[in-house]
Amino acid sequence: MAVTSDYVLPCGRDVEEVWEAIDLSGEHMRSCPHCGAVRESLLVLREATAEMVREEVEPPFDLVSRVMSAVRADVRRSDVVPLPGDGLARISTRAVAAVLRYAADGVDGVRARGCRVVEAPESTGMDPVIEVELSIAITAGQVTHQAYDEVRRRVLAAASARIGVRLARLDLVVSDVLEG
């Protein structure tokens, strides 16, 4: 397919036509000084282009490690859950866990240990939902079953009031009993 360029020669042909016929030796090409000159230039261009193709400029030696550092940092950052709104704002699950542990610590005789936070399957940017597994240590003699309800109430409240996410599921595990 011929493409008409803006580079029309005095003989009426354009540069692209000369390029397409560069290896053919038609009568016009042999006799026309304009086409001949352009053909010579195109041959030089072709030669320099071949040299450019052969040229092996290597990337900096540490480019791969820089890329992989960025990828690893991204993987760490992806440990996040959305905050309510347009879905662009996010909070790390570790930050959420810290808030929830602090809330549980407010109950007498309760010490939060591990707190694993995951985004619930039904979660969306508009309505972020999390599921939490919280392990606690309790002090013997200080904790009644009301205390577990209190932990649950405070953790639920902290999730919605302090972070803005809905807590759909809270698994509470007593992992240790401390001497009172």
């Binding site: 360029s5 000159a37 010579e40 195109l42 030089v44 261009l45």
Partner: peptide, 23 residues
């Protein structure tokens, strides 16, 4: 694709012009 071919043609013509002194 048509526009790519057009741009290529113009690029080639312009480059050939600059390379002319090396003929």
């Amino acid at each position: 694709q048509q526009s790519v071919r057009g741009r290529l043609a113009r690029a080639r013509a312009q480059l050939a012009e600059v390379m002319a002194p090396w003929r």
